[in-house]
Design a protein around this nucleic acid. Structure first.
Length: 125
DNA sequence: ATGCTGACTATGT
DNA sequence: TACATAGCCAGCA
């Protein structure tokens, strides 16, 4: 487990790991119920700092086989980015989050200070 | 190879 | 608030 994460590709190196998707999945799977994380945060936790875009792409490619808490991934500022692409899915994302206790502000945003995920180790944001 | 797209983000007008 | 720009980079035609 640590072996893989300890490789040069995990941190520091710019070499894109071939298992980027797996890393992203793992990072998303770690988000606790009732909490949310941003694309950028997931990228960092997955060892892909600055590549939030790739996280979005990975999720887009997943959608079907997802058994992951994809709804807990929000855009910067606590907004639902999915709303822009697919309103229906965006609404479901919001519904799922509200069902587990995440509350939205009047502007349809989540307060990251209150509901943002704060992992203990090897992450930052 | 090349150009375009995009569930992104930060910064500047 | 709304655009524009600039980084970022994996897929895909």
């Amino acid at each position: 487990m640590l072996d893989e994460l300890a490789r040069p590709s995990a941190v520091g190196s710019r070499r894109p790991p071939a298992d980027a998707y797996a890393r992203i999945h793992a990072a998303i799977a770690r988000i606790p119920r009732g909490r949310v994380a941003t694309y950028g945060q997931i990228a960092t936790v997955a060892g892909l700092p600055g590549r939030a875009r790739q996280v979005g792409y990975a999720l887009y490619a997943l959608t079907d086989a997802h058994s992951l808490p994809w709804h807990r991934v929000l855009a910067a500022g606590g907004r639902i980015s999915l709303m822009r692409l697919d309103v229906g899915s965006g609404l479901e994302q919001r519904r799922r989050l509200e069902m587990e206790g995440v509350r939205f502000g009047a502007r349809g945003r989540v307060d990251l200070d209150a509901f943002g995920w704060r992992p203990r180790s090897r992450s930052r944001r």
